[in-house]
Simulated assay, not measured.
Amino acid sequence: MMGLVRSVYLGKDEWNLITLNISHLIGDTVIDLTKAWIPTGETTIYISQWIGDVKVYVPNDLGLEVKVIAHTFYGTNQAFERTNRGINCRIVREQRGY
Rank of each mutant, 00 (worst) to 15 (best):
M1S: 14
M1V: 10
M2W: 05
G3S: 06
L4F: 13
L4Y: 11
V5T: 02
R6F: 12
S7Y: 00
S7Q: 05
S7R: 01
V8H: 01
L10S: 02
G11E: 09
E14Y: 09
E14N: 08
L17Q: 07
I18K: 11
T19G: 11
L20Q: 11
N21F: 10
I22C: 02
I26F: 08
G27P: 02
G27I: 02
G27V: 02
T29Q: 11
V30R: 02
D32M: 04
L33V: 11
T34P: 00
K35G: 03
A36Q: 08
A36C: 08
A36P: 04
W37F: 12
T40K: 15
T40L: 15
E42R: 05
E42D: 09
E42N: 08
T43N: 02
I45Q: 00
Y46N: 13
I47W: 00
S48L: 07
S48E: 15
S48I: 09
S48Y: 15
S48V: 03
Q49L: 08
Q49I: 10
I51D: 02
I51V: 11
I51F: 08
G52D: 04
G52S: 01
D53G: 10
V58D: 01
D61Q: 05
D61G: 00
L62W: 10
G63N: 04
G63C: 01
L64N: 01
V66Y: 07
K67Y: 03
K67W: 06
V68L: 03
A70F: 13
H71F: 15
T72M: 12
F73S: 13
Y74P: 00
G75A: 12
G75Y: 07
N77P: 06
A79R: 01
A79I: 04
A79N: 02
E81H: 05
T83Q: 06
N84F: 10
N84A: 14
R85V: 04
G86E: 05
G86K: 02
G86V: 05
G86Q: 02
I87C: 04
N88Q: 09
C89T: 15
R90G: 12
R90K: 14
R93L: 12
E94L: 10
Q95N: 11
Q95E: 13
R96D: 10
R96M: 13
G97R: 07
Y98H: 11
